[in-house]
Design a protein around this nucleic acid. Structure first.
Lengths: 160, 160
DNA sequence: GACGGTCCGTTGTAGACCGCAACCATCCAA
DNA sequence: TTGGATGGTTGCGGTCTACAACGGACCGTC
């Protein structure tokens, strides 16, 4: 059965509330969820942990932020000793960023804090439901990002 | 089967990415998703549409923001003619906020834009999956908000 | 009926995050 | 060699947020 408009709107509304709540949580949680890591540390260090050395622009792309923002945040992380930069041997303009041991450690404690928090929040979920919703969330995320990337639809909606 | 740690962490990670992506979308979408309504218009006007007249403090509670923020945003909405205020007959300190015809109309066009956007984003979902994920999202949202409201768990995590 | 504590909403202030535009240094192709 | 393209930094302005202080109104108490 194709998607009914009511279901669609209900889903977007739930999504909007979730985003709002998540934003609220991430500002409020501040130190309790990130340890001594600044709030932007997680989304920047995680790609560095997973993919190894990255350029600033690549990191910005992964984190979904402007290069200028990434530049400032990376500078802060570098000052704090979470990342290290070395000149890119292939391009004199660029730097390569690498996560330090301190960065890995901070990521680890932050991961533990998140995990602990999630354990209390999701106390009465069973594994099947959680896996199911995780699958659907990933799919939803992919679709939202795809629709967000293409500039056309909403502008068409405005014009039409 | 109880929630496995891996599932838990996977779910939080998906959730974090979704929130991040959604935030990005809501800033980027700006005019295309809200029409001429300011970005904070939707979460403020919606409770007024659903529940009728509300005080500023009640509205702030519903929107999950501080009263001072709500006060400023409501003032902007009032200047733009989306809401109307009248003194609360029961309490000389308070005002009652009511959404105007213009506000209802703006909400309606905004809803249409959202709906149109959602239609393209969720094009290849079927109704069962969408309803299922909406149900699970609502439950997830409730749990997250509950865990977010209680100050204890994360601080315990930090202390321990 | 006056008074002190409490509550509502507004305003001042400050911080976090974001993106755009201008800029320098470097790269690369013509 | 030279001019356009590119990587990263910085200046600037904008948005959203919360906390603190304040004036005005409310209410239980004396």
């Amino acid at each position: 059965m194709p998607l009914a408009p009511e279901t669609r709107d209900r889903l977007t509304e739930s999504l909007a509330r979730l985003v709002r709540s998540g934003r609220h949580l991430s500002t409020r949680a501040a130190t309790s969820l990130h340890g001594d890591l600044p709030s932007f540390g997680w989304p920047l260090l995680l790609p560095l942990e997973q993919d190894g050395d990255l350029r600033c622009s690549a990191l910005a792309l992964r984190a979904g932020i402007d290069v200028s923002v990434a530049s400032r945040q990376v500078a802060a992380l570098e000052r704090a000793g979470y990342v290290q930069r070395r000149p890119d041997p292939l391009d004199g303009r660029a730097s390569l960023l690498r996560i330090t041991a301190r960065g890995l450690e901070a990521l680890s404690t932050s991961r533990a804090l998140r995990s602990e928090w999630a354990a209390t929040a999701l106390a009465d979920w069973d594994d099947d439901d959680a896996q199911h919703v995780a699958n659907l969330l990933d799919r939803l995320l992919a679709d939202v990002e795809r629709a967000s990337a293409s500039p056309a639809p909403t502008e068409r909606a405005v014009a039409g």
